[in-house]
């Protein structure tokens, strides 16, 4: 399956899973809402251009927003993590040339610890931005930090479960051929 088709299917699945499963689940606690749709951005291929990546993130955020009637909230958070993502990948990638040998970030291509750091940092940034904007709009500053910490923990747990349940096979490609 081509990269584009795969990502389009992934986009739809992530948005639908977020809107119709995770948003419908009765809240575990007032502070904890799990989000997983932004995993789509984290799984984008290494080779995608930076501007393209931000545009895709904007569209993804807008899609989730239009279901929640919070126009702009998810879009802004997604654009932010899409902007930070390339810097983080450059910092964390350990093997020489892993970007060209593998298609997209995963445990296989980056190694377990760097990949986990990558997930944690971006999840935390996404949630903090999201709850910060929510607090700006509705004015509940007291819980905002606690909310983002707890939600990050729960989202990370879900993301790790997804990684275990749906292993992505990554072909090792050499660029010498």
């Amino acid at each position: 399956m081509s990269n584009l088709v795969k990502n389009i299917i992934r986009f739809c699945l992530f948005v639908l899973a977020q809107v119709f499963i995770l948003d419908k689940v009765p809240p575990l606690h007032q502070m904890a809402t799990p989000y997983i749709y932004f995993l789509f951005i984290l799984w984008l291929p290494f080779k995608i251009g930076r501007r393209m990546q931000m545009l895709v993130a904007f569209v993804l955020g807008f899609a989730v927003d239009s279901f929640n009637n919070t126009y702009g909230m998810h879009a802004a958070s997604c654009v932010l993590i899409a902007y930070i993502r390339p810097f983080l990948i450059n910092l964390l990638i350990s093997q020489e040339g892993a970007e060209s040998n593998y298609n997209e970030p995963s445990v296989q291509s980056m190694g377990f610890t760097p990949y986990l750091t990558y997930l944690t940092i971006l999840t935390f940034i996404h949630h903090t931005c999201l709850y910060f904007l929510q607090a700006l709009q509705t004015g509940g500053y007291v819980y905002f930090f606690l909310k983002s910490l707890i939600s990050t923990a729960i989202s990370l747990l879900l993301i790790l479960l997804i990684e275990l349940l749906f292993p992505r096979k990554q072909k090792f490609r050499t660029n010498t051929i």
């Binding site: 702009g72 879009a75 654009v79």
Partner: peptide, 30 residues
């Protein structure tokens, strides 16, 4: 700095949408 400017532009659009949605002039997209 085009990438950075593009980032600021997208952020600006999102935040504008966020704070103008509840006011009375509704945009076409909604």
């Amino acid at each position: 700095y085009f990438t950075f400017i593009f980032f600021l532009l997208l952020m600006g659009v999102s935040i504008y949408m966020l704070f103008s949605y509840n006011s009375y002039h509704h945009a076409v997209y909604s």
